[in-house]
C-alpha cells in the first residue's frame, strides 16, 4: 500500500507529542493499548505474572524507541510488533529456563469477576463447565507452537484481520492463513468435545 493511499494513523498526534517528550501523551497511548496488548501477551503466555512483566517491558521499550518511530506503519502495528516479538523471545527464554509444564498455566478465570457475572447465571453446573472449558482452552492453546498461538490469539481471539497480522509479524498473508489452518485443525481435535 502506498503512503498516499494509507489511512491516516489515528494516533499520529499523540505519537508526535510523545516524540517531543510529552509524557502525558505517551501515558494516553499506554492507557489506550494496554488492555489489548495484555490480551495478546496473556493468551500467548497463559500466565498473569509473566504477562505483567512482559507488558511493562514492552511499554518501557516503546518509550525508549518512540523517537525512532518513523511512521512507516501505524503506531498500533508498531506497538503490536514490539509486543509480539518480545513475547516470542520471552517464551523462548522461559522454555530454556524451566521447560514450562501445564501446571504453570494460569486458570484464574474462575475467579474473574466479570467473566463469572456474564457466564455463570447462578448455575453451579454451568459454572463448573465453564471453568473446565477455560482450563481446556488454555491447555489446547499451549499445545500450539508459539508462532501458531500468536496468530490464533490475534485472529480468533482479538479479531485482527489477516493483512494486519501479516504486517505485525513481518510475514506474508499466505503464511498467516497457513498457520491459522494448521492451528485450527489442531485445536478442533482437542476441543471438539465442547460442541458435539
Amino acid at each position: 500500500m502506498t503512503e498516499s493511499k494509507r489511512k491516516p494513523d489515528p494516533d499520529s498526534e499523540l505519537v508526535a507529542r510523545a516524540k517531543e517528550g510529552d509524557t502525558a501523551a505517551f501515558d494516553e497511548l499506554v492507557t489506550k493499548y494496554s488492555p489489548k496488548l495484555y490480551g495478546l501477551i496473556y493468551n500467548m503466555t497463559s500466565n498473569r505474572e509473566d504477562t505483567h512483566d512482559v507488558l511493562q517491558d514492552v511499554f518501557a521499550k516503546a518509550y525508549r524507541s518512540i523517537k525512532r518511530f518513523r511512521g512507516k506503519s501505524s503506531f498500533y502495528t508498531w506497538i503490536y510488533a514490539i509486543a509480539t516479538n518480545m513475547t516470542l523471545n520471552f517464551l523462548k527464554k522461559r522454555k530454556r529456563r524451566q521447560g514450562m509444564s501445564l501446571d504453570d498455566i494460569d486458570s484464574s478465570i474462575e475467579n474473574d469477576k466479570e467473566f463469572i457475572e456474564i457466564t455463570s447465571k447462578s448455575d453451579p453446573v454451568h459454572e463448573t463447565y465453564l471453568g473446565e472449558l477455560q482450563i481446556k482452552l488454555n491447555e489446547a492453546m499451549q499445545t500450539l507452537s508459539d508462532n501458531h498461538r500468536a496468530v490464533v490469539t490475534m485472529y480468533d481471539i482479538q479479531g485482527i484481520p489477516h493483512t494486519e497480522i501479516a504486517k505485525i509479524l513481518g510475514v506474508s498473508e499466505g503464511t498467516v492463513r497457513s498457520r491459522l489452518f494448521y492451528a485450527h485443525r489442531q485445536l478442533q481435535t482437542q476441543l471438539g468435545e465442547f460442541w458435539t
Binding site: T23, D27, V30, T31, S34, P35, Y38, G39, Y42, N43, R48, H52, L55, Q56, F59, A60, I109, D112, K113, E114, F115, I118, T119, L130, L133, Q134, L137, V152, D156, I157, Q158, H184, L187, Q188, L191, F194, W195
Partner: peptide, 28 residues
C-alpha cells in the same frame, strides 16, 4: 471454534489493574 476462543476475551483484569499498571510503569 472461534466462538469458543472468543471467550478468552473475558480473561482481562479490571480497570484498577490498568491504573496501577500505568503508575508502576512511570515509577519504573
Amino acid at each position: 471454534l472461534q466462538k469458543l476462543l472468543r471467550l478468552k476475551n473475558y480473561e482481562t483484569p479490571g480497570e484498577e489493574y490498568f491504573d496501577d499498571f500505568l503508575d508502576q510503569l512511570k515509577k519504573r
